[in-house]
Simulated assay, not measured.
Amino acid sequence: MMMMENLDMVNRDPNNINDHLKTAFDDVLAEVDGTHSIDCIWKASYACFHGCKSCFYNIFTFFCGIWMACFWGLDFAVISFAHVWCVTPTLRMCMIHCNLCQKTFGTWINCCCAPCCEVFSLIFSNIRVEKK
């Protein structure tokens, strides 16, 4: 379990889970050659993009971050509980029953069907088909 002392405050996505969200101004807005706005507008757009992105992200995380973390923590606790106490034992029980069925069916096939198939194969193996 991760402790607060081990919490990396610089690299907050060490497993690169959200690499698809890495967007810079150049990834969203771009002017092709021959179509350029006035330089001051382009610079102001750059500042506005970064300012709004940062400001609203901080506002959303301020009001919703703790509640969302609590929700996801609860959700993953329920999933972990369900798997440890319900899903895994149920799957193990099914595997045990299926193994028993497989052995029973295999024994039945080997005892009842295999001798009949062997007899018929011996009977039909002596048949020869010739062209005239």
Rank of each mutant, 00 (worst) to 15 (best):
E31R: 03
A47K: 09
C112P: 02
H20A: 14
S121I: 03
D13F: 09
C101D: 14
I123E: 02
W42V: 05
S80V: 03
V32L: 03
N126C: 10
H20C: 10
C52Y: 15
M1L: 08
A114T: 05
I38S: 04
F76Q: 12
F62K: 15
M2D: 03
T35N: 06
T88L: 04
C52E: 15
I96D: 05
C112D: 07
G106W: 04
V10C: 05
V28P: 01
M1A: 10
E118F: 05
F81E: 07
I79N: 00
F49I: 02
T61L: 11
A44I: 12
F60R: 04
M68H: 04
V10I: 13
F25Y: 12
M2K: 07
C116M: 08
A30F: 11
D33C: 01
N126T: 08
F71I: 05
H50K: 14
T90I: 11
L100R: 14
A69D: 09
W85R: 03
V84C: 02
N126P: 00
E5Y: 04
N16T: 15
D33Q: 05
N58S: 09
A69T: 06
W85A: 07
A114H: 01
D39P: 00
I123G: 01
T23C: 12
T90N: 05
R92M: 10
I59W: 09
M1H: 04
K131M: 02
T88F: 00
I123Y: 05
M95E: 14
D75S: 01
T107G: 06
T90L: 12
F81W: 12
N110I: 00
H20L: 13
N99C: 09
N18E: 14
I41Y: 02
V129A: 11
I79H: 00
G65N: 08
L21S: 13
P89G: 06
D27R: 05
F49T: 01
M2F: 02
A114K: 03
S121R: 14
Y57W: 14
C112A: 07
M93A: 15
M4K: 15
Y46N: 06
A24E: 14
D8M: 06
P14G: 03
L74H: 06
D13N: 12
V87W: 03
G34H: 01
F76N: 12
F60T: 02
C94Q: 13
H50T: 15
A69G: 07
D19T: 15
E118L: 09
M93Q: 11
